[in-house]
Structures are given as C-alpha cells and as structure tokens.
Design a protein around this nucleic acid. Structure first.
Lengths: 193, 193
DNA sequence: GTCTATATAGGGATAGAC
DNA sequence: GTCTATCCCTATATAGAC
C-alpha cells in the first residue's frame, strides 16, 4: 500500500509520530525533548533525525494527520461563511470526525501556541487550510450578527471542551454515545428554542 | 493600601506580572524566556530574579491572581458536586467572574500543560484549589449520569471556547453583552427543553 | 538505518559589585 | 534595587563512523 514493506508492523516513522503524540499531549510540545522520544523509541536521537528534519517537522506531520482527518468538511465550512443555519450541519460532520480520533484533537487543543508558530514559520499557505484560522475568520465576520457568532463559538467550545477539559473522564464512554450527546448539545446551542 | 508606596505607578513586581501575562499568552509559557521579560521591563534578567525566585514563581503568582478572582464560587461548586441543577447557578456567577478579566482565563486556557506541572511540583494542596482539578473531579463523578456530565463539559467548553478560540474576535463586544449571550447559551445547555 | 561524538546556542539561575 | 558577569545544563542539530 504505502511506502512501507511491512504488513503488521508499523514503520519507524509512524512509531515516532505515535510516541510524539503521547508525549506532546502529556507534557506539551515545548517541554518534550527529542531525547525522550528517542528513549521510548529505543533508538538514539540521531535516529529520529533520520526520519524527521527537525522537531517542528514532527509536529508538522501530526498537523497533516489532523488535516487529512477532515476531508472536505473544512472547505464546506469556508464556503458557507455567512450562513449560520448551515453551520449546524457542518458541525455534525465535524463532531463525528473529531471523536473518531480524539487524541489528535486534544493534541491540537493543548498545544495551540506551538501550532500557531508552526503556521507562522512553515505554512504560509492560505489561512483556511488551518483549523484555527477557519474558525477565527468565521467568528470575526462582521456580516454575521454577533449573537450568532457567539453561539458558534460556544458550540465549538462545547466540542473542544468535552475533549480537552474532561481529559480521561469520558474515556470509557462509547464513542457513538458521546457523539450523540455532543450533537444534541450543539443542536440546542445553534437551534433557536 | 497594599505594600507599595506609590499611588499611580505600579510596582515593579506587578509590571513583571503584566508583561509575563502578555508574553505567556502570545508565545506560551515555555517559549517565553526571562530575557524577553527583562527586555520589556527595561531591566536585566537578574532584576526579575530579585522579585521572583524562579520562572515558575511568576506563573504561580499569576495562578493566584486567577484564584483570587473566584472568591468562594469554587467552593460552592465543590460543595454541590452531585447536584446538576445547582451547576447552572454557580456557572452564572462563574461567567461573570471570568469575563471580568478575560485575559487571565486565556492564559490558563493556553498554558494548561504548564499549569498542571506547576500543580504537580509546587501546589500539593488539595485538588480543589485548582480550577481544572475541580472540573475534572466533577466530570468524573460516577454518581452523576453521564449525560449530565457531558452537558456540563459542554457548558464549560462553551465558556472557555468563547474566550480561547475566538481570540480577539469579540474584543470589541461590551463585556455585559458578551456575558448575557454566554449565560443564555449555557442556560440552553443545562436546562432541558 | 542506526550509531557515537560533537558543535552550538540558549535558557534558568547564582554570586557579588555598585 | 538593579546591575554585570558567569556557571551549568539541556536542547536542537550536524558530521561522520559502522
């Protein structure tokens, strides 16, 4: 399939990313050193540098994992910037995608500063390839009533919050159940009573 | 009033905290060096060390600023751990307090890893003196139905999200208006239709 | 592909002069 | 109260052997 020969075993590159994901969530990106990653990997620091050009490059790869997860729903959101009623539908899709791999979201949520720096330094693409950028553009759009925008911010926060603030509190809750509950909550937020 | 002699001018200590607040929000705690703080202050690094024993000590002082802001409402929440209907009232108070000094909240939101480490290293007090600790305890309480706890997580996320995700988007919105809008949203989340 | 050894820089923190 | 000078450690990253 990919560029790897193996079938069951993961490539070293993927293993590094998995380890980095754990450590970046636990300690934060800045407080995690390549030595720690290399130790868990069982190899030396230089081995890590063989697979990634820099520490930021590891974060970048994780960013792409997250980006791939969304498929086109980010574009959908960008195309309906000024249509508050359309948001609810897009967010439903979002919620499903987010919960499918919660940890990537938690990573993003907990290392916002690092990701922003990454975007400033490396990703000079458009604002909208970025999750945060998309949200901020939407929330700052003066053509949409403030009340609607605040509601959207609350809805986004509700999704993120369930993952980030709760931590491991809902780890044992089946993904489908959690998805349903969050969808219901977001529905209450975006649909007028 | 306080321990300072001056009336109009701030003490150096307070100035350091203000500068640190700005930088920690912008770049994150880890990526901010004492040299940067000292530069903005106009003094040397050693001058900063005169006022604070360590870098972590600066973060600690900011933690106390946040802590003081709450007054007793954190205790209120701790005393009504298993009463979901009481949460709504406490959160109303919370929202007002949070918005009264948004930036302290954003600091906390954006440097969760650093604050957690601070608590592990320095604050061996009780779990409940801490904002996050209080929330996590509440959200993990098995005596409360999961659905209620998820709703609470959404409500907390909605509050945090409006501050953290939105960034400067709502900077021009009057605090009272924003408070009302968030209270209304949280009400919709916690009150069954 | 993985290693050792090393270059280089920057950060936190201390000692002691003024 | 504030400064200069300095120590020490850790981190990123590179060069080159195996």
């Amino acid at each position: 399939m990919g560029s790897d020969g193996g079938e069951g075993e993961k490539s070293t590159r993927e293993r590094i990313l998995d380890i980095a994901l754990d450590l970046f969530i636990d300690q934060g990106y800045d407080k995690t050193s390549l030595r720690e990653i290399a130790d868990r990997l069982g190899y030396s620091k230089a081995a890590v540098y063989y697979h990634f050009a820099s520490k930021a490059d590891i974060l970048l790869a994780l960013h792409y994992r997250l980006h791939d997860m969304f498929g086109g729903s980010l574009d959908d959101l960008n195309q309906q910037v000024d249509d508050p009623v359309a948001w609810a539908k897009v967010l439903d899709t979002f919620i499903g995608q987010m919960l499918a791999d919660r940890r990537l979201f938690i990573l993003h949520e907990r290392n916002r500063a690092a990701f922003e720096k990454l975007h400033r330094d490396q990703l000079h693409e458009d604002q909208h390839s970025d999750l945060e950028g998309t949200f901020r553009t939407l929330l700052a759009n003066p053509e949409v009533p403030v009340a609607d925008r605040v509601r959207l911010a609350c809805a986004l926060g509700a999704i993120m919050g369930t993952l980030a603030i709760a931590g491991e509190a809902f780890a044992s809750v089946p993904t489908e159940d959690l998805t349903d509950m969050i969808r219901s909550a977001v529905g209450d937020l975006l649909t007028p009573r």
